[in-house]
């Protein structure tokens, strides 16, 4: 279980202009700015939940994950993970959690991943038999093959990320903090890692808190999302409910058999995209049955697909509203 109550993390950041004059001035008189990276965030995550943690760049997502995993001391507020206060770094807590950062490696750079695995086995005190079982399972699920015996520096990004995941999970953690675990990976690898995380969550009843700029990761993995912006929590709840509440209209995509003018299409819904015979319309929920009936019946449209609005759009609307609210209140 993860619990954060009124969590804040502030940084004192040195501010300096560019150029020689500003550099010399900063030697004599330093200017500092207080950055509220996380500003009074509260939430609870139950064991076994998969939660997406979303927000624009600089929203405070990674800072929150660092506080939850014990890397940072919070400025104020209370945090508890698996019954422990993270910054005290109790060995029992460190054995129960893991943090995967897509942009940072925990593998020893000049040695094969197998050596990092051996080191983690020793440090986490995993019995040899359990270690071999976990390694076998991870090798199969992640299709590691002989990657573990190549020096880490010679692995591709995708290969390295798979090995990173294995290194992060060999000790059998029950809480996974995943910070951009699919960044820079191709689509096939993203899918493989999504499948793997879902499988691990189900097998081990592990709690997953995921940040990702790929909304497909979040949609595929996380029934619940927490959204923060400028350090403040602006949504915590079911992903589908959020979509419905922010933009209930559907996206209907189809291919026309006979050419139709835009004038005809707008009678069915707002045109979001038009590329030759392929079009995407925005259609209200109550009009949906009639529009779909018309497209399939009278127009004989093919390749018809009905989708919720992309999460990116939903978030853009949310962040816009949150900013407007802040500006109005200030």
């Amino acid at each position: 279980m993860i619990r954060a109550r009124d969590l804040t993390k502030h940084f004192r950041v040195h501010k300096r202009g560019s150029g020689l004059a500003a550099a010399l001035k900063s030697v004599v008189r330093r200017k500092y700015e207080l950055v509220k990276a996380v500003d009074g965030v509260s939430f609870e995550i139950q064991r076994g939940e998969r939660v997406g943690f979303l927000g624009p760049n600089g929203a405070g997502k990674t800072t929150t994950l660092k506080v939850l995993s014990g890397l940072l001391h919070p400025t104020s507020g209370e945090v508890e993970v698996e019954g422990f206060v993270p910054f005290r770094r109790a060995p029992e807590l460190l054995s129960a959690i893991t943090l995967v950062m897509g942009q940072k490696s925990q593998l020893i750079w000049d040695l094969p991943p197998a050596d990092t695995y051996a080191m983690n086995r020793a440090v986490f005190d995993v019995p040899q038999e359990a270690f071999e079982r976990a390694l076998k399972e991870l090798t199969e699920l992640l299709e590691l093959g002989d990657l573990v015996t190549k020096p880490t520096r010679q692995l591709s990004l995708g290969e390295r990320m798979k090995c990173e995941l294995a290194a992060a999970l060999l000790h059998g953690p029950t809480t996974l903090f995943l910070d951009e675990p699919t960044i820079g990976l191709d689509v096939a690898m993203q899918l493989a890692i999504r499948d793997f995380v879902r499988d691990y969550n189900q097998r081990h009843e592990a709690t997953v808190l995921l940040t990702s700029h790929y909304m497909d990761d979040v949609v595929a993995l996380c029934p619940r999302i927490i959204v923060i912006d400028q350090g403040k929590l602006i949504h915590d709840g079911d992903l589908r409910a959020l979509v419905k509440q922010t933009d209930p209209d559907k996206r209907v995509s189809f291919t026309l058999v006979t050419p139709r003018a835009d004038d005809e299409l707008v009678k069915l819904g707002a045109i979001l995209k038009r590329e030759g015979q392929r079009a995407t319309l925005r259609v209200g929920e109550k009009d949906l049955p009639a529009v779909v009936g018309h497209l399939l019946g009278e127009w004989k449209a093919t390749d018809l697909a009905i989708e919720d609005p992309p999460l990116e759009e939903i978030l853009r609307v949310m962040f816009g509203k949150a900013r407007e609210g802040r500006e109005a209140s200030s």
């Binding site: 020893i108 000049d110 040695l111 050596d115 051996a118 080191m119 086995r121 020793a122 440090v123 020096p151």
Partner: peptide
């Protein structure tokens, strides 16, 4: 746990030294 980990850590340290 730390004491038990030391032989492995020394072995990894040796491997890094050679690298």
């Amino acid at each position: 746990r730390t004491v038990r980990a030391i032989p492995t850590l020394l072995r990894i340290g040796l491997a890094e030294t050679v690298a």
